[in-house]
Amino acid sequence: MILLLACVLWCVAFRCHEWLQSRNRTTFPMPVRAVWLNQGVRALAPCLALALCLMHSPALGVLFWLGLGSVCGVCTSVLMAVLKNKRGRAPAGKPPL
């Protein structure tokens, strides 16, 4: 349960991070107050996740924290890509090659 909560916190942090990027301001417009809120959550959520992981296992907490962060990052990126695609405004970007 603790690890699940840590996962949620990581996902929320990554979601806030992505929404705060200037390229997404047109897709997900937000007022100034929401920007501050997102910045706060982005900074605090990983710290809280670390505290939870250390509570779960003091010796291995950091490993759990890093591992969950990586996995949740991938999950969030896929979800965000699907969400943006559904809104029809996926920033396709120019082909890199």
Binding site: H17, G73, S77, M80, P91, A92, L97
Partner: peptide, 28 residues
């Protein structure tokens, strides 16, 4: 950090997948 464009052009999607795997799992 979490930018993935699987619905974009094929090369873009592959580079994004490479970067996502490389950056997010960099500590490991």
């Amino acid at each position: 950090l979490v930018l993935l464009r699987p619905f974009g052009p094929r090369p873009r999607a592959w580079v994004d997948a490479h970067l996502i795997a490389g950056v997010l799992f960099l500590p490991f």
